[in-house]
């Protein structure tokens, strides 16, 4: 950040549920400190004030699904020094990327009474398909603590620290008993990047992979184990094909189990 002025922060939304922006709003106490340190120049969800760029830091939520959005993200990129994709939609195309494996026109005709009013791209795209992204903050939604880590590190001027390890680490730190080993519940935790503090296993459910694949995942071995636990190959395919299904490691695994 250049000295002498408060960094200007912008938050843009594309195709998404707004959940990641809510994580930002959920920072309440910390947000006051953030508000003191940065100027929130554009954040439609939080403020009516909408200032023109350029912005020092831009957080982008959501995936690109229309031609109009392609132009909008390119414009946002031009106005931003540091652009961060936040959340599964912005990073992988999100749950709406499920349509990437289908014919979108078929969906439009099934769902909408007047399909001709619907203008959409054939696929749901991550932000990085259209513009260079400086950093990606995983999660569905993103984690509050990682978001604060991002903002703090940008203010200090260092690289944000986010885990490279799997969800299993967080389970073990908090003493959660492995649901897959102790109960035979299929869990994507071993292949999924940590960040949620192992929320689902702590509530007796398998991990859904909200934070996407770890740095060195082995989804094929994990998927084969799901089969041993009694899942059909189609179920395994669907397990990988969720919030982050279009990220390469999960996508390839889902396609392999679908075809086999």
């Amino acid at each position: 950040m250049s000295p002498g002025h408060k960094p200007r922060l912008a938050v843009f939304k594309f195709a998404s549920c707004d959940g990641c922006q809510l994580s930002l709003l959920d920072c309440e106490d910390e947000l006051l400190a953030i508000a003191g340190a940065v100027e929130i120049a554009y954040f439609a969800e939080a403020s009516r004030r909408m200032l023109e760029g350029p912005y020092d830091v831009t957080l982008v939520e959501g995936s690109v699904t229309t031609d109009e959005e392609i132009e909008k993200i390119k414009e946002a990129r031009r106005e931003s020094r540091f652009l961060v994709s936040i959340g599964a939609c912005a990073i992988s195309g999100g749950i709406q990327a499920l349509r990437n494996w289908t014919d979108v026109n078929e969906y439009i005709h099934t769902v909408y009474a007047t399909p001709k009013y619907i203008d959409t791209l054939a696929k749901s795209h991550p932000i990085s398909d259209y513009v260079p992204v400086d950093f990606e903050l995983r999660g569905c939604p993103i984690s509050k603590s990682q978001l604060l880590e991002l903002v703090t590190s940008l203010l200090i001027g260092r690289k944000p620290r986010v885990p490279e390890y799997s969800v299993c680490m967080e389970c073990k730190w908090r003493g959660t008993v492995c649901v897959m080993v102790a109960q035979g519940i299929p869990c994507l935790g071993p292949a999924t990047q940590a960040g949620c503090n192992a929320l689902c296993p702590a509530y007796n459910r398998g991990c859904y992979g909200c934070f996407g694949p770890v740095e060195t995942p082995n989804p094929l071995s994990l998927g084969e184990h799901f089969v041993e636990l009694g899942q059909s190959r189609a179920e395994v395919s669907r397990a990988f094909r969720s919030f982050n299904g279009y990220l390469p490691a999960f996508r390839e695994a889902s396609e392999q189990f679908e075809d086999s």
Binding site: Y165, S166, C168, M169, K172, C178, G189, P190, A191, V214, T216, P217, N218, S221, L222
Partner: peptide
């Protein structure tokens, strides 16, 4: 390495 998930469970338990 074909089977190992590098999930760290072995070391943590």
């Amino acid at each position: 390495a074909e089977r190992c998930l590098s999930c760290m469970n072995c070391t943590l338990v």
